[in-house]
Computed example of a mutant assay.
Amino acid sequence: MSTAAYVFDAYGTLFDVHAAVRRHAEQAGPEYQRFSEMWRAKQLEYSWVRTLMGSYRDFWQLTEEALDYTLARFPSVDRSLRADLLSAYWTLDCYPEVPAVLKDLKSRGAKLAILSNGSPAMLEAAVKNAALDVILDDVFSVDAIRAYKTAPQVYDMVTTAYRLYPEAVSFQSSNRWDVAGAQKFGFRTVWINRLDLPDEYADHGPDLILPNLASL
Rank of each mutant, 00 (worst) to 15 (best):
D178C: 07
N117L: 01
L112A: 03
A113P: 09
S170I: 02
D196S: 04
Q172M: 14
A151C: 11
Y11K: 03
D58Y: 05
T51F: 10
A20T: 07
R34T: 13
D58H: 09
G186S: 09
S36W: 03
Q33K: 15
E45A: 12
N193I: 09
D58T: 03
A110C: 12
L195I: 06
A100Y: 05
S215K: 10
L81V: 06
R188L: 05
S55K: 12
D16S: 10
R40V: 09
A19H: 15
L62G: 02
W60C: 08
P75C: 10
V101M: 02
D84I: 01
V77C: 15
K149Y: 10
D93L: 01
A144N: 14
F171L: 07
A144D: 15
W191H: 07
S116N: 03
Y89E: 01
V127F: 08
S173N: 03
Q33G: 08
V7E: 02
S174E: 09
I192E: 02
M53S: 06
K184I: 14
D78M: 15
D203A: 15
L86C: 06
A100T: 12
R163E: 13
E167R: 11
D104G: 15
A88M: 13
K103D: 10
F171E: 00
A151E: 08
L44A: 07
P96T: 07
A125N: 02
V142W: 02
D137Y: 10
D156S: 09
F15S: 02
Q183R: 14
S174D: 06
P30F: 08
W39A: 08
I192A: 02
A88I: 13
A144C: 15
G205C: 04
E26Y: 13
S215Y: 09
N175Y: 11
Y11H: 12
P166E: 06
F8H: 01
A110F: 01
I192Q: 00
A121V: 09
Y155R: 00
A131C: 05
A20Q: 04
A88T: 08
W90D: 08
K103Y: 06
P206V: 05
A19V: 14
S107P: 08
A88L: 11
R194K: 06
P206Y: 03
G118K: 02
W90L: 14
W90Q: 14
A182T: 00
G186R: 01
T63K: 05
R146E: 11
L123V: 09
G181E: 00
D156N: 10
M1P: 06
I114G: 00
H18E: 08
